[in-house]
Design a protein around this nucleic acid. Structure first.
Lengths: 357, 357
DNA sequence: TATTGTATTGGAAACGTTTCCAAAGACGGA
DNA sequence: TCCGTCTTTGGAAACGTTTCCAATACAATA
């Protein structure tokens, strides 16, 4: 087809100047009744729509928010994006999405591109908030930015929970059930500060509870079937009675892998996850996990930058003390008492001395 | 901070014209060694980055693809978006995402906004491809567009499967197991042509197999807890021996609802889903479903419009005969023979006459 | 030295808006 | 009738690029 009609075409057809067209169509400034009618008719006939491009160039505002998350495959991030999207839309902003695939260089590239596109603000989950080239770049450009899931840095606000404290609660639950030797399962340990914080909080609480140092089980690459990789890892560490996965996604995969190895959950292996995704409540038994509110985090982060753009101060505290709670589930129960030292504080669980191993 | 440096600032600092800066930084046209060095130095010192805005205005190409899906909560769409995103990124394009929340007016608004932003192309899943205001608008503007999940229209190509044929396979599986009275479960029946197509194919195959007309169970609004709504619906229809949900998401929720009612799956109620999301293989027993490739659809749709932009013809057939297959699962088994007419073809399943009802 | 050719350079137009500003027209009051 | 005021109007600048084109500089050839 021919090129799109511009304001100039409308002006020509209406027999007036482009300034008048702009005023009429935007409802700004004054115009005579006759001019108004002619412009409206012309715009209608031509199917004219303003180009956001020219507009943005002139106003230096794109009414667009950039968003970067590691991946949409994890429902936690999908939820957060959805939340951010809703908040943005409600304020008349559009969301540009990019995924970093847990890769710091892709993350940087995404941020760079979004900045070049002149997004008005950014909402990010970065690999490592404490030392991030992406965040440095954002800071240098002075674009409003709010983190999600990452704990706040000195420079940027964030919607996130206290990962260490949450992980400690998981350790406490395992301890209360009588476990003594646990494992921590991580998928992208090197590129997720959340995962590292959870491990730290978990390990510290394990020590405080008098348990042995938790074993770190790390799946490095996503190449190969995740369940198979987990199966191999679990087979290696068959003395563990409990496993804390750094997210529910991983916890569910681990459950499947364990079953594939003939180990029952939770009788042979207790499992707890992190995030509280919906699937955890669908499976039988329900997954023990830390329940968070990813949708709320996304929405909150978007509202925070939106408020900054509007010149207001953020509506809600974007502090790292966001709410979370440990949700008990059928996947975490007392370990079977067998040959190894099981210090069961509640007499009830320690009665049956039958050991199959 | 002060405003961002523009090409003009670089030119001034380098002591040359803006044309020279553009040539040097873009590697187009010629420039002397000395000019090259001064420009590079100035750009570096100022932290200059091109503005995509000015660039797009001049080139009338934003290197951006608009994407609209109903929701990110359903992993099927999250997967497709991820696939489209990857394809776009590989071609140097960015993805702008919008969600319609299964609402036709939001869908139209999203498309309108994306067109105003001058996206180079669109990748959409619409409510109703056969008659869509959104698609009419896109057609009028002449912007390259490819559908996902919706079957192709005369105007637009699409990456989708034959929903009717797929649903027929599900009906066949139920028939082979000996079911005679089935239900079809839909969440947004009025605003999903996929769901309607699946119902049509299912109903037709049921008739062809000599089964009774399937009962349509429709959940209208998303207000209230989905599982509770499903529970009420299932309680109403307690004579059904099998249920086909229009997507896995819904199938899983229905399983939970059925269990809440004390009905065992599959002993009391067989369930099959549609899509083949990962969760279906994690739960026990595995969900019987139609396996599709949402990631591939997203990627394919993006590649199709990308090819159109490059002037090439689409690389792969974006025809509606995309691959899918029915995956049997533990959630679909023969019905318990009880008082009602159960025509079990295989003698084995008809042996136990015990009926708890 | 005069002439041709080539490499380099910057001015200016164009892309589609908004908005400032000055000019022109309408209109009421004196 | 004339002047001041208010409304309506359109030209032009600005936003940040790319690119055409003419001009300049310089080297090489005749």
């Amino acid at each position: 087809m021919s090129r799109l009609p511009t304001i100039k075409d409308v002006a020509e057809r209406a027999g007036c100047g482009i300034a008048t067209v702009s005023r009429v169509l935007n409802g700004s400034g004054s115009a005579s009744q006759s001019a108004r009618e002619r412009v409206l008719e012309a715009a209608e006939a031509l199917g004219f729509e303003f180009s956001a491009l020219g507009r943005s160039l002139q106003s230096s505002s794109t009414r667009t928010i950039g968003c970067v998350v590691p991946s949409l495959a994890n429902p936690v991030f999908a939820d957060a994006v959805q939340g951010a999207q809703e908040a943005a839309l409600a304020a008349g902003y559009q969301l540009i999405l990019a995924c970093s695939n847990y890769d710091e260089s892709q993350e940087l590239h995404a941020v760079r591109t979004l900045l070049a596109k002149q997004v008005d603000a950014l909402v990010l989950t970065v690999s490592n908030a404490a030392s991030s080239e992406s965040l440095d770049l954002v800071a240098r450009r002075g674009v409003p930015c709010c983190l999600m899931f990452n704990t706040a840095t000195g420079t940027f606000p964030s919607w996130a929970i206290d990962n260490r404290a949450a992980a400690a609660e998981v350790a406490d639950a395992f301890a209360a059930a009588g476990h003594t030797q646990l494992g921590f399962l991580a998928l992208q340990f090197h590129s997720s500060d959340r995962s590292r914080q959870r491990y730290e909080g978990f390990a510290q609480a394990c020590r405080a509870q008098g348990m042995r140092e938790p074993v770190l089980l790390e799946v490095r690459e996503t190449e190969g079937n995740l369940v198979d990789l987990l199966g191999a890892l679990l087979a290696e560490h068959d003395t563990l009675t409990g496993l804390f996965a750094s997210n529910d996604y991983l916890a569910l995969a681990a459950m499947k892998a364990a079953r594939g190895l003939g180990r029952r959950v939770p009788e042979d292996l207790s499992i707890a996850g992190f995030d509280g995704i919906a699937t955890g409540l669908i499976i039988e038994p329900n997954l023990a996990t830390v329940v968070t509110d990813p949708h709320g985090m996304g929405r909150g982060a978007a509202q925070t930058v939106l408020a900054a753009l509007a010149g207001e101060k953020p509506p809600c505290k974007p502090a790292p003390d966001l709410s979370f709670h440990f949700r008990p589930g059928g996947t975490l129960c007392p370990p079977r008492p067998d040959g190894r030292a099981g210090k069961n504080d509640d007499g009830e669980a320690a009665t049956s001395p039958s050991s199959t191993q």
